[in-house]
Nucleic acid binder design. Structure first.
Lengths: 354, 354
DNA sequence: ATGAAAGCGCTAACAG
DNA sequence: CTGTTAGCGCTTTCAT
């Protein structure tokens, strides 16, 4: 079997030098004579010596790893952000500890755990609402923290303007002539503080208001996150009397559910109903879903860069970075019903559709 | 600012006890008088003491973390496995270091890095072919290693029988009466040793052979992984002369591409062409794609459990675990063209289609 | 250029 | 029950 692992002292002894010298060789110090270096290197190789990360870390006072907390990591938008963060962190030479969070309890357990000294050099929290007290707690623990896709404040964060995003979607639909527009979002919002759905809804309503369109509360559906659930809600919405001619879903995942509902109901998209999603995950493009694009991967990358800056002790880390939003028009949205439909006195003929 | 962090010695001094006692309190040793414990706890709280993971780890000889290597982590099937592993590892109290691998070089760099002592207590490699020498290397480094979804041997592994999977898909299609069946897979296989596509193709061919159906090499397309790429290949396949009446895609991602191709070409599924995928990712169910299901999440969970067993030094860790495969029939597959079509002497009428 | 020794922070064995 | 002490493995002054 593999004999007890070899320590630096043994390397030193075998090479006939002091541990200091071995350490210097290990860390490419310039102050080592070339032949000494070679001799040490040879012994290292011969003995199969491998440095202990713990010893190194303890001595240097840092772990060389940063933790990333994400909720529901199987969701495409989340993976995308995570992948972005991972790529940057890996590039910077950090190990990335990933925690998949599925409840507020779990979140708090991990947060407490990472308050432990030398557990991770930094922390990135993605798409996870954090109570102020928790953020404060991490600050006290002295571990650099960056928030991505969260409204919580108290730490540098990278976000988007969700209200503006909702407005963007609403205005796109209004510009196409739609006035009866449904909204589908997830209700998780309330349970442990998620916010984006509510914000996007607010922006959406604001757009309607600005255009003098009254928002029918009956057209707003909130339910569990997920394509299937969204499809259910959409079927309900589209199957009712006076159904909407367009639906804005607070995420692409839910938007795809709406697409499926339309298909199941044999409604044409966008002929009978236009659909707008949010995020621009890969599937949105594949299914030709019009959507409000946010830079998912970039958000993770930027979050990671910020935490690196924090860990390096850089003084001027921006407290808040807003990423740009963009409406990506695809085949799922089209002109609404003819305006004539809005003037019943004139419209004696069947309203025309394009 | 946060004063210099407080060490166990200061807690001991402040509480008027020895460091040993503080350590005992920290580790819930029973051998501490209740009032002593309370006093220490009070001081800990008052001083805001937080244990150093590094100190703890160095003393205990373990890091408390395990590393998971995955390729292309944004792919749904991979995330699923990863999520499974994460859940188990988290449950066991380990931090999980995740590395997203996108090239053989990167893989080797990380493998070398994790050969460092005390970098991680164990390693799980998912869906990543590993050269024997590398596996041997980890063994020499003494770090427990488990392989998930890999054919490489030399370490405990959790896999499926890809050949059987291909056979399953082929037989399903043959049973439906198809004889001209296309195959779409990714060519990544060759570049750094991925194997599953080739294996599935082999099983598929075996099924054809058994049924006395000759495999038209022209019906096999290998290209870059991805829905769009698969769609291209499918369009090519379906647009040609004498197109296949069914297509077996080596993954759901690619199967969905075939579905899109059919839609773009206005071919009915399964009327004009049947489609079978592989994996059973969430989208497959949503799009009614018939597929060969493999337990993705379970593979990650099991891999994690195996590495935990290894780390605990359990003696009887199975060297190879085969997870069950299952054909999930959905709406994307249906009867093939009438058998009469195969007997030209009789079929003077247009072959009927259901 | 290099050896010796003092930490880094904690656990556990050993005495009381 | 509890204080003392010897590591765990490495980096880094401080001399030489």
């Amino acid at each position: 079997m593999v004999g007890r692992s070899v320590r630096i002292a043994e390397v030193a002894a075998t090479a006939g030098v002091g541990v200091g010298t071995v350490s210097r060789v290990l860390n490419n110090s310039a102050h080592v004579r070339e032949d000494t270096r070679r001799r040490v290197l040879a012994v290292i190789d011969q003995l199969g010596y491998r440095r202990s990360r713990l010893g190194f870390g303890l001595s240097m006072g840092q772990t060389g790893s940063v933790a990333v907390l994400v909720p529901f990591m199987t969701r495409p938008s989340v993976v995308e952000r995570l992948a972005g963060a991972l790529a940057v962190l890996d590039g910077e030479g950090y190990d990335t500890i990933v925690c998949n969070i599925e409840s507020a309890d779990q979140r708090d357990r991990h947060l407490t755990a990472f308050a432990e000294r030398h557990r991770a050099d930094g922390l990135v929290v993605i798409s996870l609402p954090l109570p102020r007290s928790r953020i404060e707690g991490m600050r006290e623990a002295g571990i650099p923290l960056v928030l991505v896709d969260t409204e919580s404040s108290g730490a540098p964060r990278v976000t988007i303007d969700n209200v503006a995003g909702g407005r963007l979607a609403g205005e796109h639909l209004l510009a196409l002539g739609h006035t009866r527009i449904g909204f589908i979002g997830d209700a998780t919002s309330r349970s442990w503080g998620f916010f984006s759905t509510a914000r996007r809804l607010a922006g959406f309503r604001e757009a309607l208001r600005r255009h003098g369109v009254s928002a029918d509360p009956d057209l707003v559906r909130l339910g569990a996150h997920g394509t299937a659930e969204a499809a259910e809600m959409a079927i309900d919405l589209l199957g009712g009397r006076d159904p909407p001619t367009a639906i804005f879903a607070a995420s692409d995942t839910q938007g795809i559910g709406v697409l499926q509902a339309a298909q199941r109901l044999r409604r044409q998209v966008p002929g009978d109903v236009s659909v707008v999603g949010f995020d621009d995950i890969e599937a949105a493009g594949m299914l030709q879903l019009t959507t409000v694009r946010q830079p998912l991967r970039a958000s993770g990358e930027l979050g990671a860069m910020r935490v690196c800056a924090l860990m390096r002790g850089e003084p001027d880390v921006p407290l808040r970075t807003l990423l740009p939003l963009e409406l990506v028009q695809r085949a799922s949205t089209g002109p609404g019903p003819d305006v004539l439909q809005l003037q019943p006195m004139i419209s004696l003929t069947e309203p025309s559709r394009r």
